[in-house]
Design a protein around this nucleic acid. Structure first.
Lengths: 208, 208, 208, 208
DNA sequence: AATGAATGAGAGTTCATTCAT
DNA sequence: TATGAATGAACTCTCATTCAT
């Protein structure tokens, strides 16, 4: 009666469902970030959530599934940017610049939203401080770059090593960037792109 | 009884002690290689060893400790090479070349000794196909590079990003190198060094 | 609105109440048939029902209770036949014949209605392929027979063993009968009755 | 030193191992008897044992495996008797008599050793009061009988129903026998054999 | 020292049942 | 009355670690 007709009513049930799903995702992101994918357990996620053990399984069937959901989420949010990258007829230089810039922008934004407090002593060298979202987006960038390099019949030798190098620089400079305050995406982009492009220029041309 | 009295010998005890320690290390290396550090369990190591469960704890107190021992082992073997690098008055170019070359040589050798068969589908992007030794040596190289870059009052801006980039290239090109047959350390070195050096040259000079 | 006013009707509520109760019973019968009583879970029943989990508890308080309801149902349908058996002054031979015949007829009919597909490999010898209804009717027959034997001051020794034997034959021949195609109740009845009656005749008379 | 040389020494370890294995088997038998195979859980068994949860798995890998061990045990103890039955050239009458007698003897002995106190109210009609051993031995008898009947080109019709009947009588008279005090295996055997043999004699000859 | 069974914490998962909507 | 998400107990099983032998 007191409800405006054209607004879809959202019951309290619906609300808590959404809230729970979200809090599981949030908890999972934190746990994956803190512990790493392998070390993280479903129970860790649940605990951080305050929900009952069984509740987790109303939303996701396994650790893999939450992880995938998180990764998909990142990939989905990043998709439009990436798409714009793929379609236009950019020069290689332009492409690299935009890709790196987009990637750095994304992870900076991620980090900003999830200021995770990481205990000072790294529990183990293999644990990486990425959220699944970042990992997924990184994978997208990696694929885009590899593809672009492969497609362009690059004059340079060994596109495989080339792609690996570009990606390596992007990832590690990105990581370093996140450790600084304030986070300067423009500067990091500038650095990485320059490093990549002039690095590539120094390479010998492929034998024809 | 059957021992010749006047020759200083190692007692049976000592022998098996050494042998056991070694066989634990060997098993651990295989297991870490096959399963990754996180996924590997002490049980896995013991199983591959043929020893009793309790025996493990006579030598190492935990998975971490074997891992560290393995890493130390690698670092120790790599130390002389690295030392020679640090002491002489090489130019930066020379230094980079030698460092990368030494690193690639080391991991290629490692890999040759431990042809680990890794299941085709990477279960997760974060699992790396390195032995603890490689990881340790990588860390040494990283430190050496960072230090060298920092020390030289490099004319280039942002030594931190620079070091990160160099290291990133070294690691990822190294990884790719290991996937090829035959393993061509010279070629990979050539590539990585060129990429690094010409990349760095393209960077703007630091503001003075 | 669309209901004709002057006809006494069952409200929608009543209708769905009946329908729900029935669909729970149907689902339960299938589940018990497929999985066996012990293995079956309330969840299994609910799932096959399409109803919400909570709805089950508006009708039955537990698995035991649905089971009992199903059994009662069978017993109730069988009751008239059984009653006719108890009241008339049949000879023992006649009684046995009619009882067995009635039992076999009932279970054949049951089976016909609920062609349960049972997985080939019996997971365990104790799981029986009966519906609760069959079990209940079997219990009725067992009681009737025992009673009749006890009442008749049978000349034969050991009415307890006698009853057990008759019942055993009835049950197991009945089970076998259900496995054949076409189901031949007349033949099975013939066999079981003959076996029972001539078996009993061979027994020694009770000591007087 | 104080040990007699030709006696195999049994360490304390060995002793407790044997004792534990046995106490698991004993607990399992009780639990299966009380709860039935489906309802019984590994935890139930462990609990009755006083051992730690993990200890169970040092001996058996699953509920199935303990069950099988128990059944095998019964079958193994029964094997010699059964074998003597299969080999000799007994008449059918003689065969049946010996088989039933052996079966009743076995279950009486079982029961005597494991006077399980069963709560008065049967928790559920499907739960049978047999140990896995009895079940296994029953299966042996069933097979032997079926085989023998099938082999003899019996003049009687429908060997399948015949076997079912014989077995049914054996089982159910056996069950009843166990409920009486004192347990009279001779009497029960007499009854069952007579019932079976005279029952069979009454059957029509097979059509030739 | 080596052994290997015992231990008990804890992981993943399912289930009966409740209760706010 | 129907709904279905939340709950938490309980289950199976594995693991690191201890300790009597």
């Amino acid at each position: 009666m007191s409800q405006v007709a054209y607004l879809p009513t959202v019951g309290k049930r619906e609300q808590t469902k959404v809230a729970n799903r979200q809090s599981i995702l949030d908890a999972a992101r934190e746990v994956f970030g803190d512990l790493g994918y392998e070390t993280a357990t479903v129970r860790d996620i649940i605990r951080r959530t305050g929900l009952a053990a069984g509740t987790f399984y109303n939303y996701y069937r396994s650790k893999e599934e939450v992880f995938a959901a998180l990764a998909d989420d990142g990939a989905r949010r990043f998709a439009p940017i990436l798409k714009s990258l793929r379609n236009r007829g950019y020069s290689f230089e332009e492409f690299v610049h935009r890709a790196i810039s987009a990637y750095f922008g994304f992870i900076a934004e991620e980090q900003r939203t999830w200021i995770e407090r990481r205990p000072a002593g790294e529990p183990h060298p293999h644990v990486r401080g990425e959220t699944p979202e970042m990992a997924a987006v990184f994978a997208e960038i990696r694929d885009a770059l590899s593809e672009d390099i492969a497609e362009r019949k690059s004059p340079f030798s060994d596109p495989d090593y080339m792609a690996a190098s570009c990606i390596a620089i992007a990832r590690d400079v990105g990581d370093k960037m996140l450790e600084r305050r304030p986070i300067d995406t423009a500067g990091a982009t500038e650095f990485a792109v320059t490093m990549i492009l002039s690095g590539l220029k120094g390479l010998p041309k492929a034998k024809s």
